[in-house]
C-alpha cells in the first residue's frame, strides 16, 4: 500500500484514507461565458498523460477531508512531494534526485 503525506494533517498515512482527484492546476476560466468551444474542450477534457512526474490532486477523504496537490511519478508510483491546495506548482528540478533531472 502506498503511504501518502497529507500536508494538512502533517502525517504520512495509508493510501486507503485518500482518493485520487485528477490532474492538478487546471484553472477555471475567469469568464466562462466568454469561452469558445475549443477552450471549453481544453478545460473539460484535455489532460496530460505523462510517463513520469505528474501534478495531480488528491483528497484526504477519510481524514481531514482536504483536497491537496501531489507530484507522483506514474512509472514508479513514488510520490515526489505533496503540498497544500493553492500553493504554487513546485519546480521539478528541486524534486528529482541528481542524475534524473
Amino acid at each position: 500500500m502506498l503511504l501518502i503525506h497529507c500536508p494538512y494533517c502533517e502525517e504520512t498515512l495509508p493510501e486507503a484514507e485518500f482518493t485520487y482527484a485528477g490532474q492538478a492546476h487546471i484553472i477555471r476560466p475567469e469568464n466562462p461565458s466568454g469561452q469558445t468551444d475549443d477552450q471549453w474542450e481544453e478545460f473539460l477534457f484535455i489532460r496530460a498523460n505523462p510517463k513520469g512526474p505528474h501534478y495531480e490532486r488528491w483528497r484526504h477523504f477519510h481524514g481531514c477531508g482536504r483536497f491537496f496537490n501531489a507530484v507522483r511519478d506514474t512509472v514508479s508510483d513514488k510520490f515526489l512531494t505533496t503540498y497544500k491546495a493553492g500553493a504554487p506548482r513546485p519546480d521539478l528540478s528541486t524534486l528529482l534526485p541528481e542524475g534524473q533531472k
Binding site: 500500500m1 502525517e11 498515512l13 495509508p14 493510501e15 486507503a16 484514507e17 477523504f61 477519510h62 481524514g63 481531514c64 477531508g65
Partner: peptide
C-alpha cells in the same frame, strides 16, 4: 490501515475502518 501506535493517548483521528469513515 493506519499505525494505531501513531495515535497518542489523549488524541484522536478521523480515519478509515473496513470501508467506513
Amino acid at each position: 490501515a493506519r499505525d494505531i501506535d501513531g495515535i497518542p493517548v489523549g488524541e484522536g483521528r478521523r480515519t478509515f475502518f473496513d470501508g467506513q469513515t
